[in-house]
Nucleic acid binder design. Structure first.
Length: 427
RNA sequence: GGAGGGGUGGCAGAGUGGUCGAAUGCGGCGGUCUUGAAAACCGCUAGGGGGCAACUCCUCAUGGGUUCGAAUCCCAUCCCCUCCGCCA
């Protein structure tokens, strides 16, 4: 959601910003409805004010024992009442319509975001490490997973259909070790408060983050008006919905591990082998509530917080600044972290770090107050994965499988969690 | 699932159908006093919308209803608490 005042005063800037994302913002519809709403509201309030005055006078007249005058006032009030009802109905209807339109506006890209419509136009900001080299062509993760018995794809399909994985044995343990390591790291080293939120949420929470009403087809829903979360961003961001935070408590940093559920409706047939794209996956999510003037600085810090994991694991990756057309509707500025997977010979997105500015805060009504007597202001909200588990696991086993023996070397930080240094090739 | 109780401002806690957006206390802020602090005393202290402004409207869980008028009465929904049952 954008600031109403801003849209009124800068309709062209809103149109232009949305256009950079390849989205048409309903600016004209907004302006028209907004004007009608304000007119209707004014009319309603004027008559309501009259009615209030008359109603109050009735009480006073009764108190003074002026019965006749009170009766006359009652008749007048009754007339005003029906007028008020009509006007109120009209105003409320327009307000609801305005809100509906408002929720359809995309967020506007920041000035520092490059133009572009496809991933080809994203900009690589920096790379870390080097592409690992192998004596033989490195294996793909699903072959390694089968070789080591880390994942049972067939039984996953039997149990849940396509797009799921059953991690088995050391695969399950590695999966768990990554989660444990990342959460421990972000809470110990980077100052995030750990939270374990529900994986089922009300639709109102999804409106708050911007997933509804526009992107319902991406979500799994239940018969109970609850949705499965597509990311921990949803429950965590909504933690402070309708609250006014104390500015001195900012930045508020929350880290959460959850499963994530996505229908991947638009991605059927893409990345079908292995665990590159599944309907359920696990990740650690980092969410920050910050002062508006700090949010772009906080975005850079968020990116490095997520990078810390990849560096600790010694995995080659790059940081990509997404162009306006590729970053989705909700963000102002977004960096992707892409880890290199040797078997795939490509970079896999394991994190998207986004500054939403006040877009989500406005939808979810999350504000802060700078001091006593100050007006509440919307906070800026940022989030990023830190990181997504399956793709990280892919990069890990593809990077650390030794060509000659087929053994998988466990990187240093994971050893305490794994209890072993190497996954021996069973053959 | 059954029975009962309850949702009021940052918190606690009053509230008779008619100057109640709401007593009082605590907390917070400002002031007097003090070398400074404490204490005491005085004042201020909910959120949102519209309007340049004066001002005005809405909000006492939410949505309906009764009434000229609802925090107050009625109905529905949601949430919380207690007891019983069930359960990891």
């Amino acid at each position: 959601m954008l600031d109403r005042q801003f849209i009124r005063q800068n309709p062209d800037a809103v149109r232009a910003g949305a256009a950079r994302k390849g989205v048409k913002a309903p600016v004209d519809e907004f302006l028209q409805t907004d004007a009608a709403w304000r007119t209707a509201t004014h009319e309603w309030e004027t008559v309501q004010a009259q009615a209030n005055t008359v109603n109050k006078s009735i009480g006073a007249l009764m108190g003074q024992g002026k019965k006749d005058e009170a009766e006359a006032a009652k008749r007048e009030a009754a007339e005003l009442k029906s007028k008020v009802g009509d006007l109120e109905g009209a105003a409320k209807e327009l307000e609801a319509k305005l809100r509906e339109i408002e929720l359809l506006f995309p967020n506007l890209p920041h000035d520092s975001v490059p133009d572009g419509t496809t991933p080809d136009e994203n900009v690589v900001i920096r790379e870390w490490g080097e592409k690992p080299t192998f004596a033989e062509a490195p294996k793909k993760h699903f072959d390694i997973a089968l070789e080591h018995g880390l994942i049972d794809f067939d039984r996953a399909t039997k149990v849940s259909g396509s797009g799921f994985a059953v991690y088995t044995g050391m695969g399950a343990k590695l999966h768990r070790a990554l989660i444990q390591f990342m959460l421990d790291f972000q809470t110990r080293e980077n100052g995030y408060d750990e939270v374990y939120p529900p994986a089922l949420v009300l639709s109102s929470s999804l409106v708050g983050t911007g997933n509804l009403p526009k992107f319902e087809e991406d979500l799994y829903s239940t018969k109970d008006d609850l949705y499965l979360i597509p990311t921990a961003e949803v429950p965590v961001t909504n933690l402070y919905r309708d609250e006014i935070l104390d500015a001195t408590d900012l930045p508020l940093k929350v880290g959460a591990f959850t499963p994530c559920f996505r229908r991947e409706a638009g991605a059927a047939g893409r990345d079908t082998r292995g665990i590159l794209r599944t309907h359920q996956f696990e990740k650690i999510e980092l969410v920050k509530y910050v002062l508006p003037e700090e949010s772009y600085n906080e975005l850079e810090l968020l990116v490095t917080d997520a990078e810390d994991i990849l560096q600790a694991l010694g995995l080659h990756y790059r940081v990509v600044l997404l162009c306006a057309g590729d970053m989705g509707e909700k963000g102002c500025k977004c960096y992707d972290l892409e880890v290199y997977a040797p078997g795939e010979d490509r970079y896999l997105e394991v994190s998207s770090c986004t500054n939403f500015e006040a877009y989500q805060a406005r939808r979810a009504n999350i504000r802060m107050r700078r001091g006593p007597g100050e007006k509440p202001e919307f906070v800026h909200i940022l989030n990023g994965s830190g990181l997504a588990v399956p793709r990280l696991l892919v990069a890990l086993i593809e990077t650390y499988r030794l060509s000659d023996s087929g053994d998988i070397v466990i990187p240093e930080p994971l050893k305490p969690y794994m209890g072993v240094d190497v996954l021996k090739n069973p053959d």
